[in-house]
Simulated scan of single mutants.
Amino acid sequence: MPGAGKLDRKITIRRFTSVPNEFNEPVETWSDFLPNIWARREDVSDGEKFAAGQVGSSLRSRFVIRSSTASRTVTPVDRLVHEGSTYNIHGVKETKEGRRRFIEITAVKDND
Rank of each mutant, 00 (worst) to 15 (best):
R79Y: 07
D32Q: 07
G47E: 05
E83S: 05
H90Y: 11
K6G: 15
R99Y: 12
L80S: 06
G91H: 13
I37F: 03
G84T: 04
D46Q: 15
L59W: 10
A51K: 02
R14T: 11
G5A: 15
T106N: 07
F23G: 11
T73Q: 14
G98W: 12
G47V: 01
V44Q: 15
I37L: 09
T106H: 04
G3P: 04
P26T: 09
S57H: 11
K6H: 14
G53I: 01
F102L: 00
G5R: 13
I103H: 04
F23C: 09
G91M: 09
S58P: 11
I13N: 03
P35E: 01
D43T: 14
D46A: 13
R100C: 07
S68C: 00
D78M: 08
Y87L: 04
V64Y: 04
R100Q: 11
V19D: 11
E94L: 06
A39N: 05
E104I: 01
E97L: 15
V108M: 09
Y87V: 01
F102P: 01
F23N: 15
T106W: 01
V19E: 13
R99M: 10
W38D: 05
E22G: 13
R62F: 05
R79D: 13
F33Q: 10
K109A: 05
V92H: 09
D110E: 05
S71T: 06
D78I: 05
H90I: 12
L34F: 04
E83W: 00
E83R: 05
R41Q: 12
G84F: 04
V74I: 15
